[in-house]
Structure formats: C-alpha cells, structure tokens
C-alpha cells in the first residue's frame, strides 16, 4: 500500500517532468528534465522492486544511478563542441 502510494507520486512527477521536456523553451530545460526523469526512474524502479517483492530490481536502479549522468555530461559537452569546437583556432575555454 505504501509502495503503491510512492509509485503513484513518482509517476505523477514523471509526467510533469516529461511535460517540461516537451515544452521546455531552451535546450537546457530539456536536459534538466531528462536528468530528473532519470532520477525519478531510479526511484520508480526501486519502489516497484519492493512492490513486487523482487529486490533484484535494485541492480537496475544502481546502473542508472551510476551512469545516467554520463548522458548529461555528454550532452553538455557535445552541445558546446558543436558550437565552438568546429571553428578551428578559436580558444573559448571548453565547457
């Protein structure tokens, strides 16, 4: 019961984050929304693992907790690179 309540809360938050990712005027809004969508997925998978009494789901959350931010870093990096890295000779100091 309590896990169901937690799941419901997380699902509502995921829907709101998805709305921000779809609306988000700047590119940073979308990145931020994806990032917190990832965090919410970590919570969701952990809670569902308890809801269905299969704690081995926690490994999946652990994977997300460990490597989800790589995506964010990569987006930031490639975004900047795409803008400045291509013009050779300009040193704008990296991300």
């Amino acid at each position: 019961m309590m896990f169901a309540a937690g799941t419901l809360a997380v699902l509502v938050s995921m829907a709101l984050a998805l709305a921000r990712a779809l609306l988000g005027p700047t590119i940073y809004d979308r990145i931020m929304a994806v990032n917190s969508f990832g965090t919410l997925t970590v919570i969701l998978i952990a809670v569902i693992g308890f809801l269905s009494d299969r704690p081995s789901f926690l490994d999946i959350s652990l994977v997300y907790a460990l490597i989800n931010f790589i995506t964010t870093i990569a987006i930031m990096k490639f975004f900047k690179y795409n803008r400045i890295g291509r013009r050779s000779g300009e040193d704008l100091g990296g991300l």
Binding site: A15, L16, A17, A19, R20
Partner: peptide, 13 residues
C-alpha cells in the same frame, strides 16, 4: 519523499 517529488516536478514546470 513522494510529496517532495511532486513538489519538485511542479516547480520544474
């Protein structure tokens, strides 16, 4: 925690 999640998401929006 669930309440904080929803609050944060509403804030994000």
């Amino acid at each position: 925690g669930g309440a904080f999640c929803v609050i944060g998401a509403v804030g994000m929006l």
